[in-house]
Design a protein around this nucleic acid. Structure first.
Lengths: 220, 220
DNA sequence: GTTGGCTATATTGTCGACAATGTATTTGTA
DNA sequence: TACAAATACATTGTCGACAATATAGCCAAC
């Protein structure tokens, strides 16, 4: 699952990963203040470590810092979620286009295998897909783009935020079988090296997802 | 010109801005190592300040840090520049689409005024456009998208890198009058609230720019 | 002469203390 | 009582020192 060497080396690394996890999964609530002293005692490291971790969290747009005042976890707003999906549509669309151009035959084979294993689970009625499977699929295409900036922005930046929204607004919802078909068509386009179509299908796929999420927002 | 309140408050802010400027404008060469001690004496601040500044530079993808080894200014490669333009095409295309949807009539009027003032200068043969004017135009559309993530990624992230490439590879080149026509058509699409067309034209505009840059790369 | 390990040096990582800034409380005056 | 200034407190920003890690140079063994 974890594609990249996200091995923590320094104490700041470990603290950053831990803090990010706690924020994304709701252990630290959205909008809450991050007191350096408090976190310092909680995670048993010096304030310097906490400060570095907070700076990195700011880079992924998970917290906002104001000079001489402090850092807060970002607030989750419906508008913010829409903003995110617009950026996703744009970037992942381009990722799919580039994947159609740059993925190796082996990578495409693996993508097909992944899809088949998904199909098995969907067929047997397992409530699959909700999280890991979907993320896995998207990650492979993003990485398949071979574009470093694209990869960093999406995987290090956007995806953690999206997950934070999903977790804290309780959106592990349906869109299972339909999404599977969309995935299938995207892979087909990539297999055919049809860049134009791959981008268009991915953008639509994410737009559907956005609408699905929007519908849930108004209900709650 | 400077749209955003980029007022430095802390010493770390000032040092970050200064370092960024020195890197983007080539005062510190691409690929060179950033020694904390050295920079500390050079900029007359403590190592802690330098470290924070370097961390922020890493967030904008201007430097790369390795644990226990140090930070280097990113290397400028032809492939890296192509990657950048692909991301730009994707994000600015979406920005133009959202601008067509979200810009106020006043903002659109101002954009038209800007375009007219450009036209005057182009007509009188001033070797305009090379830098500020073009950036100004693009910034307004990016800001007009009203999408916070989009704005941050482009203005805080991509644009400094693009400028670094331009400066250090000596690309202040032509593409003056043709680019003006492209700008004109984009504004027209935005005025008509034609999201689809605005995005398409912006993407083409950046693709042309990319090809222009590619042509210069092979020559050098 | 070359290779392997050891020592010395330089660089980054981490820490606790102090300075500067922001916030809350108190006090005095109208 | 209401408001404003001054004071006390809490939090962030900055610094220099020490610890941990990486790099370079040296010596010994083969």
């Amino acid at each position: 699952m974890t594609f990249f060497n996200e091995e923590p080396i320094t104490a700041a690394d470990k603290t950053f990963f831990q803090l990010r996890k706690d924020i994304v999964e709701g252990g630290i609530l959205a909008g809450s203040k991050l007191s350096e002293a408090e976190l310092s005692t909680k995670y048993c490291v010096s304030r310097a470590i906490i400060r570095e971790a907070i700076n990195r969290l700011e880079s992924c747009n998970l917290v906002e810092r104001k000079a001489n005042i402090g850092a807060r976890v970002v607030a989750l707003t419906p508008a913010g979620l829409i903003d995110l999906y617009q950026v996703r549509e744009s970037l992942e669309g381009m990722a799919a286009r580039l994947a159609a151009k740059n993925m190796t035959p082996e990578e495409i084979d693996n993508l097909n295998s992944l899809l088949n294993s998904h199909f098995q689970k969907v067929k047997t009625g397992e409530s699959y897909y909700q999280e890991a499977g979907d993320v896995d699929f998207h990650y492979r295409i993003i990485l398949g783009s071979k574009n470093k900036h694209l990869i960093t922005m999406l995987i290090d930046g956007i995806y953690h935020l999206v997950r934070m929204y999903r977790v804290q607004l309780g959106m592990s919802g349906p869109r299972i079988t339909t999404a599977f078909d969309e995935h299938r068509h995207i892979v087909q386009a990539i297999s055919n090296r049809d860049e134009e179509l791959a981008e268009m299908l991915m953008r639509r796929h994410i737009m559907y997802s956005k609408k699905n999420v929007e519908a849930k927002l108004v209900k709650s």
